[in-house]
Simulated assay, not measured.
Amino acid sequence: MLDHTNEDTTADRTAPIVVIAPDSFKGSLDAAAVAAAMATGVKRARPDAQVRVCPMADGGEGTLSAVAGAGGRLLTIGVQGAGGAQRSAAIGLLPDGGALIESAEIVGLTDPAGTSTPVLERSTTGVGEAIRHVLDLGVKTIYLALGGSSTNDGGAGLLVALGARLLDAQGNEVKPVPAQLSRVVTVDVGGIDQRLADVVLVGMSDVKSPLAGPTGATFVFGPQKGVEPRQLETTDQSLVTFADAVERAFDRAARERPGAGAAGGLGFALYMLGANLEPGGEVVARKIGLDRALHGAHWLLTGEGRSDSQTLSGKAPFVAARFAHAAGVPATLLSGSIDPHSLRDLNGHFRGCFSIVPGPVSLDDAMRNCAGYLANQAEQLARLMLV
């Protein structure tokens, strides 16, 4: 969100321009609250600073809020959650006429109702229902943020919600959940919603995993969703069986494509529907106008809950730093914690990497006092950077 509320249009043209573009500090503050705390600190050090607040996300939880904050509107719809129960979920209708659906909003890991259902009985049916809803609105470009899902169904639920039928050897319909995918022999795609042919589908994800195998959806991400060690091999093989039938039906191959394993295989289903997968952080940065915010700026301040080597795989702070570098603006990282073993790599992209905590504190204290710690450290960094 390009926010000029802290800018004084009559201010001295030599006043520093600061762009603040953090991700959320998960479990503590959302991205907008993190940015506000950072801005408070900067303004303490330099009251004359022009602060441009651009909360970020990278395709996971919070993506909808970040993009919607730059314009457009939120619409609440009814869909199935991961466990099959009805729930309300927000989708974003964007100023350019597109729509954004956040899978974490529908089948997210933070939804207690969905995650109370065993992972092998969860599905992405609600995500497909959300796509169908925006098709009813006449939307021609659909962005689907894939991070933070609690599902591992290969996108079976999404495909069924959009008109596909999963059939066993006797022609009986198969429920689109991981526990049943080994029974799938045929996939009937004759009923797939024809409006999808005229829509641009974009999946937002930084995951490069294929659908199956040792680096695929189940073995890499399944355990955090509840797949038990004894279930890994059979669950993975079920995705292979499902993929065999789906690829025959669509007459295209996608299981090995980078990102097919994103969101428990939701990336695979999107590929089947002709989607492209793009880095989530870059899509968000474009949608919120980060490049415009950096025009004429003197400093970028970004951060996240914890920064380590994974930050450089496309997380929001890394994307923000890349945009800043392209604009000739130095970028500083201010996060809840910094992995000391990753500092050498991180330092290649940031003008310093800093933790918000002033000394040894408990995790509970750090999370409870996050806003205050952020403001204090941002103030000290501003005194250093904006002399």
Rank of each mutant, 00 (worst) to 15 (best):
Y143V: 00
Q80E: 13
V200Q: 15
R257E: 01
A249D: 03
H133A: 09
F250K: 06
G62C: 08
G84F: 13
V34H: 12
F219V: 13
P258L: 01
G267S: 08
V185H: 14
E278S: 14
V160C: 13
L201E: 01
Q377W: 00
V207Q: 08
A375T: 03
A197R: 15
G261D: 01
M56C: 09
L211G: 04
G148V: 09
L93Q: 07
A326Y: 07
S65H: 13
S335M: 01
S24T: 07
D206M: 05
G114N: 08
K43F: 00
S88T: 13
Q231E: 15
D198I: 00
T117V: 14
G154N: 05
A35L: 03
F25R: 05
T235W: 13
P214H: 08
R195D: 00
G190E: 03
R73G: 10
M385G: 00
T218D: 03
R46N: 02
N6S: 08
A253E: 11
P223D: 00
I91F: 10
E102K: 15
P214F: 09
A85L: 12
A130T: 07
A382N: 06
S123D: 13
R252H: 09
H298A: 02
Q170H: 14
G328H: 12
L162I: 04
A45I: 03
D206K: 14
L312W: 07
G114H: 11
F219L: 13
V139G: 12
V284Q: 12
F354W: 15
M272A: 02
L301M: 15
N276G: 06
G78D: 13
V177H: 07
A169P: 09
G157P: 09
P176Y: 09
L196R: 12
H295N: 05
G213N: 05
G148R: 14
I20W: 11
L334D: 01
A169L: 06
L239C: 07
G108I: 04
G157H: 11
D168I: 12
D30V: 06
G59A: 07
S355N: 03
V200W: 02
D96T: 09
V34K: 12
L120T: 14
G108P: 10
L146I: 06
G213A: 03
S116C: 11
V177E: 08
M204G: 06
E61L: 09
G267D: 05
Q180K: 14
G154P: 06
C353Q: 04
Y373Q: 05
R383L: 10
P95H: 10
D3F: 11
N152E: 04
K225H: 06
T141A: 08
M38H: 06
F250T: 01
I356M: 14
